[in-house]
Write a protein that binds this DNA or RNA. Structure first.
Ligand code: FES
Ligand code: FES
Lengths: 151, 151
DNA sequence: GTTTTTCCCTATCGGGGTAATAGGGATTGA
DNA sequence: TCAATCCCTATTACCCCGATAGGGAAAAAC
């Protein structure tokens, strides 16, 4: 799972947006509060609008708002909008992989890995992250001390 | 989760090796049985040896064997040896990410996602995949029909 | 209706990784 | 000796990533 800088920035910007409830917020405020490269993130915001995750408002006193309530936008949706599919093998979706001989059951492993990812990223919303109350099964995953150790 | 062609080939080659039990097998046989690009996979095999996942035997009648029993080598180990860490955010390990303000709890999400990946890839061995008997929790993941649908 | 503010578009850049091939050198067992 | 096999070092083409530059378009405020 390679989360690009672009996707990471996208999530953070949307979290800042969520923190402002329904208000319109200027891009420069979001960017400054997260300390991100301005010009780069401006292009990300346009991508997010095209993906219908945020709405833009032009002109003086313009800015951005979430396209839907924070509880209805998952981290997975944001990552997918920016980075593409959550899981790919050789550029193919896991379920499209076809294997023969000794590798016959390999696709099942990739599909299981993707399903595991989905259970975390698609069931965690901006609202969950914002107030720190993650879903129980996610919290249990991150709760184990060994989850924080490298391998 | 981006599994590169290199890592995919590595796993498939090692599955073929596992199918031959303790025997020494020539690279060309492994490569032909999985229909892979010869010269490319030759370099992968060298990487696998350096990672101590296979042992090589030179000279006439040479070839490769697994460094350990197939039940003691996980898919995760192979992927890590070839592609590097299972999960990275902006080139950093998930537990190294530091966030402020509205993003304060974001690292927990990345860590949970990595933990979910580990539970699948680190607890599934070559032997499991070879005989199609995956661990129960992995099988349950891949068993759900919706796990095979794109999003 | 002008001004100001903000978003928005296109182009560009360097660097680095990915997939793959080429060609031959080093080792070892037969 | 000899032949098979692994092994090493380029080199290639290509694309993506992170980031910046510079200005154009829209829309609200006044
Ligand atoms: S709280 Fe307003 S942008 Fe951070
Ligand atoms: S079964 Fe021998 S390499 Fe495929």
């Amino acid at each position: 799972m390679q989360i690009s800088a672009k996707a990471d920035y996208a999530v953070r910007v949307m979290l800042e947006l969520a923190a402002h409830g329904p208000d319109v917020v200027k891009s420069t405020i979001l960017i400054d509060h997260q300390d991100l490269p301005r010009k780069f993130v401006e292009t990300i915001l346009v991508d997010l609008r095209r993906a219908d995750l945020v709405r833009s408002h032009r002109g003086a006193d313009g800015g951005y708002t979430l396209a839907r309530p924070a509880s209805a936008i998952s981290i997975g949706q944001i990552v997918r909008a920016i980075d593409g599919p959550l899981a790919e093998v050789r550029g193919l979706r896991p379920h499209e992989c076809e294997y023969t001989n000794a590798a016959e059951h390999l696709a099942e492993v990739w599909v299981a890995a993707r399903a595991a990812l989905r259970k975390v990223l698609d069931e965690t919303s901006l609202a969950h992250v914002l107030n720190g109350k993650l879903p129980v099964h996610v919290r249990r995953m991150a709760g184990s001390p060994e989850a924080w150790l490298p391998r």
